[in-house]
Design a protein around this nucleic acid. Structure first.
Lengths: 197, 197, 197, 197
DNA sequence: AAATAAACGAGACGGTACGTCGAGTCTTGGG
DNA sequence: CCCAAGACTCGACGTACCGTCTCGTTTATTT
């Protein structure tokens, strides 16, 4: 489970922002250098010049630490442009997703989720904080297009979204072949082919 | 790397089939009971009534052991029926794939692949022994349909295959929601929608 | 080589005296019960209720541990009584030596030294911490007797000391027949026979 | 315990002298190269080009193998010259003893004996095959001298022998300082000093 | 200013599992 | 029946990290 929120209402030394940043920085560095399997809390603490206790005080374990790193690194907005075409909107969404997930931190985060069990809190945090917003953005694009009559109104939205997102995850996670912009555009075109009016 | 092939041409006690089977059996049992993260070579050896050395003699590490377990469990044929419809052929292919990959061993194997680096030998073995054959089966179905004129001849085969396989992997690996038969049939229908003549 | 001295000047949890004592106690117990050859660090750790790491943190290996046990057990003074006779002084020295070396810990320590190479650090520690002081005590007795004119002044001191100590070690180490008080007194008498004026 | 005698009366392949010699040779070589603690049956078998089984068929363990090596290497006679002086007889006896025991094999054998328990079969074999004969030789020298009236007839023979042998073992085993010829001659002189008429 | 209180670095602690080594045994085929 | 080869079970090795636990110290807020 995740660490209890520490409030700081009645006295005591406040949490050190310096340490926090050093820890996150060390985590990313060591991850890039040696990969997730070789990543140890002890090494992070040493590199960050921090006691192990400080890490455990704020994060329950490596996975929560990685989740935090991931979320801090990828705090970009999900924007949806009303005036752009469906293709453009989807391409932009998927390209930004690909950029994030094909980074070292992104791939690591994905593989943690893949590793985790069905009701894992970490996976749920990842869904609600990262995945759902992007998926919701995709849904908005589709609904807007249906309203405009550009897309058939009898399509199963979740299925269509899976056809758009699924191949991206698949190529990154399983095939280790990060999708190019051309790939993404072809994918969007091909999916739209089957659902346009 | 993988263990060197041990030949048994001149002399020496032959490899014990009994031990081999006991190891594989113990691995599956412990995996089902406690999950991959709690799976240790020591526990496998103890459960199998086998020395640790015997495990390390034949498998470099847990991952190769799991790969071996996976491949022995899933040695089914990829059949392709000429007379069945494209829908039927694809549905059958994806249903069988889903059954395998959503099992405990299957999901574990997938997450090992997800965890592994880009040029991992383990991932390559998994591709060539399991993934490629299924994908090749899918390609054959498509090509046959193109020859029959049922599918447009300007579609990008690999992309279409990604649209079929991708969502399956995605739901199993990331969403932990194993695809139902209905889901798979809808998926096949929706993909075909965009590529039929 | 021996473990580096750990100081505890700035920070860190201090070394646990409880664990240290438990380890030394367990070592002695297991040694008495099963002998040195059956003595394992794992068993000591288990018996002492201590992690193996804690043992390895403070002692490089079984031999240093045994040396430490030996020295803590045998921290007796080497006293030399001016008013007693040479015979009495030597008998007392050799009896106390025999008592120590014919104990389980003592014999074990001796056999470790016997086993060790010519420039072994462990043997040197044993010499300087235990052997040399007793030998020095013997030398003092001889020199005092020479001054008093009771012993010829042309004897080779080291040789005489070897004639006193050698038989003791020999009987304990090789013949496994611990010298009795009578044996020691006869030995002292016989040696003195050849060197008195 | 020691290996049962293998008779070779009713057929079967006879014991290979070649293998036996190769094993003994390999044992000595590896002992000289790396010391006793690093000496393993596996290494001996490999160096000798011999199966481990062959070693275990004829020797119960490393210690018996070493004993065998020792006895084969030191199969010299204990001669006693009637016409030589007591000094000369003892010096010769102790010098030859020193030469044997200060060799690598000799020191190893001694330390095995030192290590062993009080009723160890290996130690007993060593006594009866090697030590007792030399000691008996020493006793004969003393008795002959008493008969001749050169030595007092009230000395305790075993004690005198201990005073001669003890220092030698002591210096080799504990002090790792092999006695020189001069040392031995001084020792013999000093001991005789106390027992001559 | 003093007292309180929490966070900090350091690092020792009990554990678990690792991957390796060697012991002594067993099982082949071959001499 | 011996032998080389080599796989077997078993037990211990010494190492790496885990997550927890003291320490003495530092940095705030509250009295």
């Amino acid at each position: 489970m995740r660490k209890k929120e520490h409030s700081h209402e009645q006295g005591g030394r406040p949490r050190s922002e310096l340490s926090t940043v050093a820890i996150l920085k060390a985590t990313i560095e060591l991850l890039e250098e040696n990969g997730y399997s070789a990543l140890s809390i002890e090494a992070i603490a040493a590199r960050a010049g921090v006691g192990k206790t400080t890490i455990y005080r704020w994060w329950s374990n490596k996975e929560y630490l990685l989740l935090d790193v991931f979320l801090r690194v990828t705090q970009s907005e999900v924007q949806f442009k009303e005036h752009a075409s469906i293709q453009q909107n989807f391409s932009q969404l998927l390209i930004s997703l690909t950029n994030v997930l094909s980074s070292t931190v992104g791939r690591t985060m994905l593989s943690i989720v893949a590793q985790s069990g069905p009701d894992s809190e970490i996976a749920n945090k990842f869904y609600s904080s990262y995945l759902q917003p992007r998926r919701h953005g995709g849904k908005k694009i589709l609904e807007s297009a249906i309203t405009k009559g550009e897309i058939r109104n009898n399509v199963i939205l979740d299925l269509v979204l899976d056809m758009l997102f699924g191949p991206i995850y698949f190529r990154i996670l399983v095939y280790k072949d990060n999708p190019s912009v051309e790939y993404i555009e072809s994918l969007v075109d091909q999916v739209l082919e089957g659902i346009t009016t």
